[in-house]
Design a binder for these strands. Sequence first.
DNA 1: TTAGGTTTAG
Length: 777
Amino acid sequence: MPVQLLKIIEGQSETPLPSHLQREDLKHLQEGCDYTNKYIQGIVTLSYPLTKLRDGTDFFKIVVQDSDNLCSQINSINVFMYGKMAEDCAKIIRHGETFIVAGFKVIKLPTEREDARHDCHLEVSEEAGSTIYIYTKPGTTAASETASVSVAPKYVYTPLNHLKDGTVVNLYGVVKFFKPPYISKGTDYCSIVTLVDQSNVKLTCSLFSGNLDFLPKIYKVGDIVRFHRIKIREYNGQMQGITSGGFASLTFDGTVGAPVVPRTSSRVYTFMDEEQKTIEELRIWAASNISISGPATKLSGVQPMLFFDLTCQLVGKAKVDGSSFLLKVWDGTECPYPTWKVPVEAQDLEGEKVLLHQLRNLAVDILVYDNHVQLAESLKIGSFLRIYSIHAKEASADNEDVSHMEFHLHGGTCYGRGIGVLPESNPDVKELKEFLESVTLTDSQNMESCSMDIDSTFGNVTVCVMLFHLSVYCFAVLTDHQDLSNTELKTITNSAAPQQYRIRAKLRTYKPQKLHQSVKLHCSKCNSLQEVPDRDDFDFILHGSAGTAPNPELHNTSWYESVTWTAQEQKQRKIAIHFVKRDEMLQHPEDTLIMIEGGTLKEIWKLTKRFKCVIPVRSTEDDLELLDLSAPFLLKGNVKYYGCKQCSTPKPMKNLSSIAAEQQPSWESTEIAQVLGIELLQYVFIMKFTLVDETGSLNAYLFDDEKFFQIPASEILTSNFLQQKMQMTMNALCPPGRKLGDLPWLECFIKSYNVRDAMKNQVYYQIFDTTVAEDVV
DNA sequence: TTAGGTTTAG
């Protein structure tokens, strides 16, 4: 008899298995072995409806789990039954029963693997000589004898189209919308969840609990929930769910094929194989019936005027004021726009100082408001968050020419706005953690250290060469170095430096991705490079110098005329402006250089719009002097000019009178710098290009003030237009999202050079005499 | 009780 029912009495089978059969372990199964006298034993966890194959043969599939090895990574296997055996078995088998099969075949198919299931399946049929034994429990009988036999307590789940006012039900649903738990105006946390099921009926539930853990752990639209004991009420003509006594929930990942592991805080819950099946069916239904948004937005993909959800890690937080709170987060990618920095007191900022400094180019400030403040305050540094419906807003301060990106989590909970803490077990968190670990901090910062090594031979630029051409068949228009032919990258990296080459390569990647970060200040005297000071540095110095009142003895001299006034502020700030004259005469504002004492950032910025040059100064006993050289010593149009702290020897302002006396003073920055003893810093682009060809790859540095992009490095920081132009150029040279094979070819000149220190000699490469062709952008 | 989905306006 191929299928036998063996009754168990007091844990023992009435009829023992034939003694010649030996039990086999799931993990030892192999295709091609003989299993005539071996058997597999396990619990039936899943069964599929009996179907017929094309040739009419009955086919029945079940999943059997090895209950003795539940912890084993592979603890279940698919069993395929054919013919009469399939038909017989389908009639009597029940979930949770013990299933034994002897004399089966082991088949391995490449696509068999599912979760913790064996990558082989068992083929079972009378023809193959299989025997099946099924242990049933006392008091239960086979389905062929009596219908609906149930061992475990059974819950009844109501489809969403069958809900009735005033009832308490159990239900399943796919999350179509949710608000992550937030602090309600009452005493509890609240979470709003809208579900939908195969009936296509929606149900919005208001869930309340004083304990965050009792609310469903929903992380994204598409998650599947099971609610037990939810009360149904009618509200505004529609059914509504609301928590009632004994409410309990399980949440599952809604992804087809993901492990069916419930998220719950409850230690005790029932979860049967039937319910696993329900989840799997809902997943499949949802895959084609619920619009689940595409790939998650990363900071690198943020667009202005966008509301987006961000999965990130918290690295800093700070109190801002009563109604807003600052979160500093990162996701390992760089926002392509300059991002705002919310000013906070240093002592209010919580987080690892060193890490915050290392991540200063990657972390972004998110300002959260109102009802989100309390939750934000309770967040732990280092935790992983999903922040829902962040508003990316492009804005520019009235004393800034270049806009920046702001991130706000506005007050209220519309559109699911809120903050959720993700557990480390969350698959998205696992993926993010791996990615964050791959973003080596030293790498993201190494532009600064490497660029310091660029040798001093730079500057020997001759004729500008049109070298980039972006067709598939690349060619170069050469107006110089005609003698150079293309050299393969491998040859270059195998050769000694210094040498010059012409190359044909693809730009695989470049740094920094945030192009405005490529702008640095370079001192041609000491060859140092430094970051361009930001507005805050300047503001800080101006605040400091505002404490020194203008010295009246220095007003109205032979070469300048002075005006003073007191700002109507609490601190009674004194401001003096000195207008440089020529031949005792004041000039037109657009030709005039002015010096200002006690001005604010905003006032100075406004003056630069009207006057040719502005020099911030302060009084000493016997002359006006420049401020600290971290501040610009001269502002002219949009450009702030800085001096090298190391190489400058600032001189009194009266030295300017020699220029003022000229017939037609042009007020050139170089000339002003010279008479004031300032070693002028030059704005330069410093970038690292990773170039590849068929033979290899190398990193070449771009060190350029204007030639390469045809954009003055000194002006790019204050011009949206120029920043866009530069971005377009880079997008043309290295189109985002393009595979290596599809990248355009480009030609350029590079030169190799040695950098030696006490320990070693290193060869570097630098792009030179290369200009992006006009038709590129 | 709370919220009852449908973006702040900082």
